[in-house]
Simulated assay, not measured.
Amino acid sequence: MKLFKKVMFFLVFEFIFCTAFGTYLVFYGPFKNIRNTIVTSAMTTMNHKYIAKLFLNDNEINKIMDENKVDSPTESENEDAIEVKYSSNNVECINIESSRYKGYLLIVDNPRRVRIGTSSDLGKRGETLGQILKRYNAAAGINAGGFSNAMTGTGGIPSGIIIEDGRIKFIDDEKTFNIVGFNNKDVLIVGQYKYDEIENLKLRDAISFGPALIVNGKPMIKKGDGGWGIAPRTAIGQTQDGKVLLLTIDGRQKDSLGATLKDVQDILLEYGAYNASNLDGGSSATMYNDGKLVNKPSDILGERAIPSAFIVE
């Protein structure tokens, strides 16, 4: 009995010591990249900021967030650099995989097929991506813009602006919007625009989200991981020949922890994105293809109710 108590005491001591020492090394030792990933992941969640604040003060946290932030675009998209080809209506689904995450990339040859779909009770209640696609009779799609009532789970009140088929379908009281969408030439527009600039963009379908990850072939993340930590991700990009890239990365799962914004940027660059933007991720990250759910959403209840989606007609 005494031997058993000694062994148990030793095991408990070792566990406490290793946990405390490991935590110390992560936050105050040489593992800067691990520390930064933990801090940025915690600070971009709604409920887990305490993980960073427990070990670091506000100045240290702000410094880490600043070192990893995405640069704001200093130029507008060069629309003339995109030469859209309409020779194919093909949609290809590619598996994306690394040691840390699994995801899926839809390559849509014809950008005219990619449009915005919205929930039937927009402004009050959202719908799952599957429900939105079914109502629009769409072949594929991903979730798009964010929403302000995430805690209630209704997903019906969008953030920013939604433009569908050339008409403003929803707009809040913000004066500047992170635009992600297509103009009447089927060119993807990404970046911040004021309300009085939106009309000149001649947008046919767009939502609000960000940050922009690639503008005119130039990556916006030049240092750090983008400052949003590791999480499920959704993003959109366009190649110079007009193809649309729709990306979803699974996260918060044992076989797929998630991706950083830098990971997403690098994937889209690898597949030729000339302009690209982050979309709403986390529990909202969802992809359908051929009427079937492709990825594994991280929400324990399954698909999350959302206000908007990029759909493939």
Rank of each mutant, 00 (worst) to 15 (best):
I162G: 14
S119D: 00
G146P: 09
L201Q: 10
N90Q: 13
D66T: 14
Y86L: 15
K175F: 05
N57Y: 09
A81I: 08
N78W: 06
F177Y: 12
I168Q: 12
N89E: 04
T152F: 08
N200E: 12
G126M: 00
S120R: 10
E75R: 06
Y195I: 12
F170L: 12
S87A: 13
I116D: 00
L56I: 13
E127A: 07
K102A: 02
G126P: 02
E60A: 13
G181H: 07
K102H: 03
E97Q: 09
F177Q: 04
I64E: 00
I168H: 08
G160A: 08
I132S: 00
L201V: 11
V108Y: 01
G126R: 00
R167Q: 14
K175A: 07
I107S: 03
G181R: 07
L106C: 05
A140W: 00
R112D: 13
G103H: 01
I157D: 09
T128C: 05
S87W: 06
M151G: 08
P111V: 12
R135P: 01
M65S: 03
Y86E: 09
D80I: 15
C93D: 04
G130E: 00
A138F: 01
N110M: 11
G103P: 03
Y136T: 02
E79P: 10
A150C: 12
Y136P: 01
M65W: 01
L106F: 01
F177R: 04
L106Q: 05
T74N: 08
E164C: 11
S148N: 12
Y136G: 00
T118M: 09
Q131H: 05
N62A: 11
V114C: 05
L133E: 00
Y195H: 05
E79N: 15
T154I: 12
T154G: 07
D66Y: 11
E77D: 06
D173P: 08
K124R: 13
I179M: 10
L106I: 10
I161P: 09
A138H: 02
S76Y: 12
M65E: 02
M65C: 03
G166S: 06
Y101W: 03
V114H: 02
I161H: 03
Q192Y: 13
K63F: 06
N137C: 09
M151L: 13
L54A: 13
N78H: 11
A144Y: 01
P158C: 03
I162A: 14
V190F: 10
G166R: 09
K85R: 14
R167V: 15
N149K: 05
R100V: 06
G103Y: 01
S76N: 14
G191D: 08
I61S: 07
L106P: 02
N90F: 06
F177S: 04
T176E: 11
S76W: 07
S119G: 03
G141T: 04
R135C: 02
E67T: 09
P73K: 03
A150D: 07
G153M: 07
I162D: 08
N149L: 04
T118K: 13
Y193H: 13
N57A: 12
G141E: 00
Q131W: 02
V190E: 06
S119F: 02
A139V: 14
K202S: 15
I168E: 12
P73L: 10
I107W: 01
G117A: 10
N183P: 06
A139D: 10
G181K: 08
S72D: 14
F55R: 11
F182W: 03
K63I: 11
I142F: 01
G126V: 01
N178I: 13
D109P: 08
G141Y: 00
D173S: 15
V84K: 11
G117K: 05
